[in-house]
Design a binder for these strands. Structure first.
Lengths: 181, 181
DNA sequence: TACAATATATATCATTTTGTAATATAGGTC
DNA sequence: GACCTATATTACAAAATGATATATATTGTA
């Protein structure tokens, strides 16, 4: 999803400022599958405003820039509904960790070990966050579905890594030349 | 990984043109975790050449542009090895499908059904490709590890979706008011 | 208590990435 | 014969990303 659609999606659950949109994505259900920074959000909101898909109310504040609270217009709501029914792109995973594992053969074993341990810790941290969200209750069915999905996938990843890590580290412990000789 | 590092990574497995790098990423092990288009590859190769991380040999061809075959320099090889040991970013998944599922409540049930079926088909297609690669044999341990990883995760996704799809479609079939009454 | 870190809030700029089209030809399919 | 796919690179606009700037209140730590 592009930044504009993501902003519309967050705003469909309640009015928000750019700053609040960021927080909502980070800690809400969208966070499982999306990532967005301020440098994407603010230009997106400007363009949405140009197209009358959102309206703005400014609140003066002391010590900070004025807070601009955005609100979906009827047009914006229609636009979101339209976007949701457009053809989906296929899912994508980017993994720096797996990328490095492709080079396990040529990396120092201790480095590989460390990377694996770090990744497993990250997964456990993610699982903890998922469980916390699950205890806090869900906004709708999709939210519950996605949380369960994320938990299942993270667990599968951790299990696979734990069961197969010896392949990687074993291979880097024994230099290939030694095997050939 | 950025485009430059990805190019270095592919070139570390053999000399290639931009076009061939694209194909290698698409159908090789990198394809599980990376995506890259020509509009990223060619500028990346230019910059790598500027920095002497790759060298080029041009081959004249008829009917097509000259083929430029790139080759890692010693410097390029060092640079790749360095990049592999830099801190990893956390893994990221983008899913248009899951994004839409968050709005299952407000989408027509038939549309949701269709999206789920499409997604399951895509996963099966991906699994078929993974199995084909597994039968073709692996280049190194990392490759085998990643293939198994991808298979495990895709299978976990499909199973979860099949077991929980009724939640989503049920929710959009039965208006919430009807449940409350 | 002093100092540091975090939270609040937006803007901007350079760099990267992405999507799309242009170009040109050979070979296979309907 | 028309159309699609494969080969191969370039160019350009649009979008996303990372980093920095600005300014202050609050919270946490030593």
């Amino acid at each position: 999803m592009d930044a504009k659609t993501l902003c519309l999606a967050v705003l469909s659950q309640g009015d928000a400022s750019g700053y609040e949109i960021r927080k909502a994505v980070e800690s809400g259900p969208f966070g499982h599958i999306q990532d967005i920074g301020y440098s994407s959000i603010y230009p997106a909101l400007s363009r949405l405003h140009d197209d009358d898909l959102v309206s703005v109310t400014e609140y003066a504040q002391e010590g900070r820039p004025d807070k601009k609270v955005y609100k979906l217009t009827a047009e914006g709501r229609m636009s979101l509904l339209g976007a949701l029914q457009e053809p989906t792109e296929s899912d994508k995973t980017r993994s720096d960790f797996l990328f490095r594992m492709l080079f396990a053969d040529i990396l120092p074993p201790s480095v590989v070990e460390q990377m694996i341990d770090n990744r497993l810790q990250e997964i456990e941290a993610t699982l903890a966050r998922i469980n916390a969200r699950s205890n806090a209750g869900f906004e709708n069915t999709g939210d519950a579905f996605l949380n369960g999905f994320a938990a299942t996938v993270q667990r599968a990843m951790a299990d696979y890594i734990e069961e197969n890590r010896y392949q990687l580290v074993g291979s880097s412990l024994v230099p290939q030349r030694a095997v050939a000789e």
